[in-house]
Design a protein around this nucleic acid. Structure first.
Length: 425
RNA sequence: GGAGAGAUGGCCGAGUGGUCGAAGGCGCUCCCCUGCUAAGGGAGUAUAGGCUCAAAACGCUUAUCGAGGGUUCGAAUCCCUCUCUCUCCGCCA
């Protein structure tokens, strides 16, 4: 949610900075609503003040056992008008709020302008893609060849876009999450968090999934709960409605959860393999930051995610998303893309964003600043990393000509010392 | 799932229709006093919004006593719904 004060004072400017995001603001509509709001609110509050004053007098008269019918008649005379105004005010404010909830964040000045992913800007490449002296297979062929990856059975149990892993592959998946958590807690100073996988609508609003992306979420409607699409939702909402002490910032939290996405609107995309699933695991990094530090911390957080890829010796590149390719809530986003030899391309494995005060405003997440006044925090998060896609990257990058897969050195301690995954017996 | 009790400011806690944004205490901040390891006195101490203003402060004003609705000239106080907490019983990883 944007600052309504900013919209009031600089609607044109905000509108312009967003034009290449494919989002044109209905400036006139907003301003009409605003002037309506102003008129109604002023009159409403005047009448409320009058009513309060008269009621007080009535009370005083009654205490002295004097007659108050004249005053009561006066209050009653304006009662209908006041009631209508109050209803009208609520309506206008609701419409203003609905409007605000639909408006995406304003990109930071450093974000390149552009319509789609083609305009994203490459920041750096790390690691050399491996040259294969045999025909490289993709992760589906590798995993199924090992007898450890099974989409058919998962479909029987649930439906399409779910996966079943077995044996050392399932263990490798678990090992990856453990490894990531250990690195972030032991080397990067994050506090590990275990959080609910089902959240209420208010939490979904807080981080920006609602109201705009309600269709993308799995819901348990009878209970008013939703499966989390990312740990960002429960973890960021820890500070919803809180006023933190300045000394508590930055809060650095890491959380491993499954993520659930309906992938509505992505039918036919990435249907093969584990790239796009309804359920996948992710280790999420979340920071609650002082506004003056948030961009510095975004670079740092991105580096924390990169560390995992470096330790696993997987080639990757870092992209700055352009204005048109960024998510709804973000002010700036770096995507980390890992090299997938079978696709001969880099694929997103982490997305690290600074939301500035966009989520904080929705959540009313604040801290006491130097003047001891409550001020909105900045929120950041990034995948550190998506576990399923990291598994895919390992299968493809570490595959052997005999169909086995080497286990990266950093993961071997988590695999009971095993150095290779071989076909199940 | 059944029965009962409760939800008030940073914390504790009073308040059952009127002058209550809320007594009192604790904590915290500032000032004064005191020369000694303690204490005393005074003032202040919620959040959001609106109006005024170039802006900030001030000022005026509205809303908020778990949430939402209702009754009333007036609600922390009465009524309804929901959420949460606690106690007992049942069930359960």
């Amino acid at each position: 949610m944007l600052d309504i004060q900013l919209l009031r004072s600089d609607m044109e400017g905000v509108s312009k900075r967003r034009a290449d995001r494919g989002c044109v603001l209905p400036v006139d509509e907003f301003q009409a609503l605003e002037s309506q709001r102003k008129a109604i609110q002023t009159e409403t509050q005047e009448l409320q003040a009058k009513r309060n004053a008269l009621s007080k007098q009535i009370g005083q008269l009654k205490a002295k056992k004097e007659d108050a019918t004249a005053l009561m008649t006066e209050v009653n005379a304006q009662a209908d008008r006041l009631k209508a105004l109050e209803a009208g005010l609520e309506d206008v404010q609701q419409r203003l709020n609905d409007f605000l909830m639909q408006v995406p964040n304003v990109p930071h000045a450093s974000v390149p302008a552009g319509k789609d992913a083609d305009a994203n800007q490459e920041e750096r490449r790390v690691g050399e893609p491996r040259q294969f002296d045999f025909a490289a297979k993709d992760h589906v062929d590798i995993g199924e060849g090992l007898g450890l990856l099974d989409f058919e059975t998962a479909t029987k149990i649930a439906r399409a876009r779910f996966v079943l892993m077995k044996g050392s592959l399932a263990r490798l998946h678990r090992a990856l999450a453990q490894f990531m958590l250990d690195v972030h807690t032991q080397e990067h100073g994050y506090t590990e968090v275990y959080a609910p996988y089902l959240v209420n609508a208010e939490s979904m609003r807080g981080t920006g999934q609602f109201p705009k992306f309600e269709d993308d979420q799995f819901a348990v409607t009878e209970d008013g709960l939703y499966l989390i699409p990312t740990a960002e939702v429960p973890v960021t909402n820890i500070v919803r409605g809180e006023i933190l002490a300045g000394a508590q910032l930055p809060m650095k939290l890491v959380c491993h959860t499954p993520c659930f996405r309906r992938e509505a609107g992505s039918y036919g995309k990435d249907t093969r393999g584990m790239i796009r699933q309804h359920q996948f695991d992710k280790v999420e990094l979340v920071q609650i930051a002082h506004p003056s530090k948030s961009y510095e911390l975004l670079d740092e957080l991105t580096g924390h995610a990169e560390t995992i890829l470096k330790k696993l010796d997987l080639p990757y590149r870092v992209m700055t998303l352009c204005t048109g390719d960024m998510g709804f809530s973000a002010a700036k986003t770096y995507d980390i893309e890992v090299w997938l030899p079978a696709q001969n391309t880099y694929r997103e494995i982490s997305s690290c964003s600074n939301f500035e005060a966009f989520q904080a405003r929705r959540m009313q997440a604040r801290f006491r600043n130097d003047k001891n006044r409550p001020e909105l925090v900045h929120t950041l998060n990034g995948s550190g990393l998506a576990v399923g896609r990291t598994l895919v990257a390992i299968l493809e990058n570490y595959q052997r000509s005999d169909g086995g897969v080497d286990i990266p050195a950093a993961l071997q301690p988590y695999m009971g010392g095993a150095k290779v995954i071989e076909r199940a017996a």
